[in-house]
Amino acid sequence: MSASIHHIGRDDAPSLEPLMTLVANDMNAVNSVILDRMQSDIPLIPELAGHLIAGGGKRMRPMLTLAAAKLIGYEGERHFKLAAAVEFIHTATLLHDDVVDGSDLRRGKTAANLIFGNPATVLVGDFLFSRSFELMVEDGSLKVLKILSSASAVIAEGEVNQLTAQRKIDTSEDRYLDIIGSKTAALFAAASRISAVVAERDEETELALDAYGRNIGIAFQLVDDAIDYSSDSETMGKDAGDDFREGKVTLPVILAYARGSDEERQFWKDAIIGHKTSGDDLAHATSLLQRTGAIEDTISRARHYGQRAIDALGTFPAGKAKAALIEAVEFAISRAY
């Protein structure tokens, strides 16, 4: 047991490098599964899937599956296919998201739907979902199947919840947290947990890894929603201000609206229903977010969830795996600066 207490905040710039180095060899095995299973006799399928899968994503979720296995000392290979299944679920949701949102960029490249069209993008997303379930079934664990299939259903619920909240300025912070807990954090949690299942560890270990994944997932999304207003497309891999133009009511907007004057609240109402989408409107929105402390407080909440993720690792032994997982949390928060 490790008695040390780690608090978020460090003098140097945190990096994903320790996590990537930790799982590099295992990630090669996972990537082989991904490349093999995205193949099809229908040429458009690997072409479209490859556009996104080869698009330079961080592979954060499958890396958490592999790192969790290292943390608990699992030395088998079952988690390789499952990490690939996790990445397929994530990629499928991104393809569907881009169609729903009408996005122009994904991971710094033209979104697949703009190149291949909406119908093909949705159908290839369905193909990748199906591949992920094939991989789960091949593993043979009903518990793993339950965890990952439940996460898939929760993600879809979160996306529908977000869609029905779109352009509604009165969306509450609680509903927003429900949305990101479903659409983002659920897969982080499942990805982190499944290694404990294949390693046949106790439920306490499973739940600790689930809590780590869930909380880093929430922190990750909070930071994403903050930097949508304060970063650039090169940093984010998507266009700055996308959430603003799409009428997404994220936490920075919820806080700024609650704290604004009558005039400022009217601006947010007009902006969120789509009447103010110009570059000048985005600049004004950003200035309101800064003035009301909405960005800063969103990052503060991200730190809170990041600390919860780190605390969830408290009972695991010190070592490279634990240090890398802690630094991954630090990295998630540091993207805001």
Rank of each mutant, 00 (worst) to 15 (best):
A271T: 10
D101A: 12
R308L: 15
K276S: 11
A211R: 12
T205N: 01
I333C: 04
L313C: 08
G57Q: 10
A332T: 12
N118P: 02
S150F: 01
I42H: 09
V122W: 06
A283Q: 11
L16Y: 00
I8F: 05
W268M: 01
F116G: 04
T93C: 11
R131W: 00
P14M: 02
L282R: 14
E263S: 12
I155M: 15
T21A: 11
G57L: 07
L255T: 06
I147T: 07
V33I: 15
G158K: 07
A309Y: 07
V144T: 15
A312N: 09
G50I: 11
D311G: 03
M236S: 05
N31K: 14
L135P: 05
F188K: 03
T250I: 02
L22N: 09
I333H: 00
K183H: 07
G140H: 00
S300K: 14
L114S: 09
G181S: 13
N31C: 07
G306I: 07
M27A: 03
A69F: 03
T171N: 01
E134C: 08
A156Q: 09
A211M: 14
A29D: 15
A190T: 10
L313F: 07
G76T: 08
N28L: 15
M20A: 09
F316A: 07
T65S: 14
D41K: 12
P18G: 06
P43Y: 08
R214P: 00
R335W: 07
I72V: 13
L255S: 03
G279A: 15
G319M: 06
A190M: 14
E17R: 08
K276I: 08
I254P: 04
I8H: 05
S192F: 03
F133R: 14
H275R: 14
D239R: 10
S132K: 05
N161S: 09
T65W: 06
A240Y: 03
T93G: 05
F80C: 06
G260Q: 02
A283F: 04
Q221E: 09
K276A: 15
I254R: 00
I216T: 09
L35W: 02
I8C: 09
P43K: 09
N118M: 01
S334D: 12
V99H: 05
P46S: 02
K320P: 12
H96E: 05
L82D: 02
Y74L: 08
F331M: 02
H304A: 12
T93R: 10
A69M: 14
T91P: 03
M27Q: 13
E296W: 01
L148P: 03
A328F: 04
V137L: 06
D210S: 12
D12W: 04
A302G: 11
E157W: 01
L82W: 05
E246F: 01
P43R: 06
S287C: 10
V122I: 15
G274W: 12
E200T: 11
A120P: 00
N25M: 13
G241V: 09
A309D: 06
R259Q: 03
L251R: 11
V249T: 10
H304R: 15
A199Y: 06
R107L: 10
G314R: 11
L48E: 08
I5Y: 10
L313E: 04
S132G: 06
K269W: 01
K146S: 10
G274R: 15
E263A: 09
S195M: 08
T286D: 04
N113D: 11
